[in-house]
Design a binder for these strands. Structure first.
Lengths: 250, 250
DNA sequence: TATCTTACCTTGGTCAGACCAGAATACATA
DNA sequence: TATGTATTCTGGTCTGACCAAGGTAAGATA
């Protein structure tokens, strides 16, 4: 009954097809009358009830899909999902990719995320996190001479730190920027390897971060992490000076 | 020519219609061959070129629309947009509606952003930033007795701080979370006002943040900001304890 | 009777072609 | 040259259809 009323109001309400259907579903989702795990009625029926064609309904469902609100399972049905923050990944990828010359700016966000995450990690990390960090650290040492795998090991360590912070939001944000940072990193990493002191810096810094986390010292952990970034920035600057022109063609 | 090659690869690539089209457009967008302001070719032509039907293409375009990447203008065409933050508010709305625990987690991200931003602000803030901060501070004092405008003034001050950091990325991220945090803030703010000491805390803390920025002391600025959040968290906790049941009906 | 097969129905995935209304544009006219 | 009109183009939507595979229940088998 309740539903019928809403649908009646839906037909009257402004909006062109897609808009009204999307708004309708959005309301139902937000109001909680559709809860995670629920299965929507078949597309054909739903389309009929909403007074739109199936393609239009599917546009709306697809829109909700990219928002992570529902999941369309082939030959099964449309299931309401508990949205996880991973959909932000898509968005940030787009958002950041288009302002491509702002890598340095994105770096500020990465620093923000990691400094907070390492604090949380120092408080919340479990024994398994310690193990994972230890492994990542080992891998950094092992791959110290290789640019490719070395870069990956570096990122992996930092990612492990963030995950040890147990904040899904921070993890997602961090992952979101990893893509572009990774890309920019790839283009400069050869340069970095020319410095021999780099190796020491890479290994020692990460070990100190690890120690601070294991030592349950958030304050110190952040301090070390911040220094780590500062030194990295310094290396990068020095490398840039050696480089003739930092402009890449798009 | 280049395009043809990609399209050929597209046809071969796995994925079911929608998936491949979405992935294709995504690549073009990310790669930068499609830039903000560009108008896509007509749906009919694009669908034909991609080897899918128009409804499927529209599903993909709709998906990109909710991500804020493109804008479908009726009877005009599909225009590539530079994604703005409003999309994120949509998302956080959904995420929040179904699990209120996210708030606490998002708060960690806000702390991360602001602590980094306040550091940058201490380094980069201009005289006009100082003025804006001063104004925001004044407004906090003026609205100290009103829950509604007081909350806004509070947020405005923090937003001003982030903007003074001159990092576009941090501003974007911060704005993204403002929506959801604002909403949660609204529901608890009455509770906070019961403490008289709150007023002192609110005014003094913000003034100390302001002073640290003006004093060009990043280290201290972050410290004060962090303490500010810690105390706020403490107030919130105490308020929660005073409350009988923190569960809200959905 | 209990279990295994199999045929059928449902459901999402996709397509083709069509119609509409309004924006954009070209063109004819004053 | 300026203006108004006709045509084309574009998104918005609908209809009806076909496919492939998951679910299910009737029927076959042990």
């Amino acid at each position: 009954m309740n539903v019928d009323l809403e649908i009646t109001r839906l037909r009257e309400s402004g909006g062109k097809g897609f808009e009204k259907v999307f708004a309708f579903l959005r309301e139902r989702l937000l109001a909680g009358s559709l809860r995670p795990g629920d299965r929507l009625i078949p597309e054909r029926d739903l389309a009929a009830q909403l007074g739109v064609s199936r393609p239009i309904l599917r546009e709306a469902l697809r829109a909700l899909t990219v928002l992570g609100v529902v999941e369309i399972r082939d030959r099964v049905g449309t299931i309401v999902r508990r949205p996880d923050l991973s959909v932000l990944n898509d968005f940030f990828t787009f958002a950041f990719a288009q302002q491509s010359e702002v890598i340095d700016d994105v770096m500020q966000a990465r620093i923000a995320i990691e400094c907070q995450a390492v604090r949380l990690a120092a408080e919340r990390a479990t024994v398994s996190d310690f193990e994972r960090l230890q492994q990542a650290l080992t891998r950094i040492v092992e791959t110290i001479d290789d640019a490719d795998t070395g870069g990956e090991a570096d990122f992996e360590f930092h990612r492990t730190v963030v995950m040890a912070g147990k904040s899904e939001t921070l993890v997602v944000l961090h992952d979101s920027m990893s893509g572009i940072l990774m890309r920019s990193h790839r283009s400069r990493r050869e340069l970095l390897q020319v410095f021999d002191t780099m190796k020491v810096y890479l290994i020692e810094d990460h070990r100190r971060i690890f120690d601070a986390i294991v030592g349950r010292d958030p304050e110190h952990a952040e301090k070390v992490m911040r220094e780590h970034f500062a030194i990295g920035e310094d290396f990068r600057r020095r490398a840039a000076i050696g480089e003739s022109g930092p402009r890449h063609a798009p």
